[in-house]
Amino acid sequence: MEFLLAALLIILLAWFVAAPLRGGEAEAAPASADEDPAVADLEARKEAKYREIRDAELDREQGKLSEADWARIDAELRQEAIEILKELDRVKGGAGD
C-alpha cells in the first residue's frame, strides 16, 4: 500500500514536471515584451525613478528640501524618467516587431 502510494505520488509529480516538455517543438521566442530582460530592467528603473520623484516630493512637503533644491532635483529626476520612458517605448516597439 505504502509502495503504491509512493509510486503514485512520484508518477503524478513526474507527469506534472514533464508537462511543458510534452508540448512539441521549442518555442524559443519570448511570449511577450514584458518578459524581455531589457524591458524588465527598464521597468525596474522606471519604478525606482517614480519612487525617487515621490520621495523628493515627500521630502519637500516635510521641509527637508528647499523649493529651489526640490525644483532642481525634480527636474533632473523627471528628465531621467522621460529618458527611461522613451527607451521603454523604443524597446517595447522593437520587441513587438
Binding site: 513526474a14 514536471v17 511543458p20 508540448g23 521549442a26 518555442e27
Partner: peptide
Amino acid sequence: GDRRWVDASRRAIYA
C-alpha cells in the same frame, strides 16, 4: 530561450 525547459525546471522545484 526555450521556455519549456525553464517551465519544467520551475515545476521541478514545485515538485
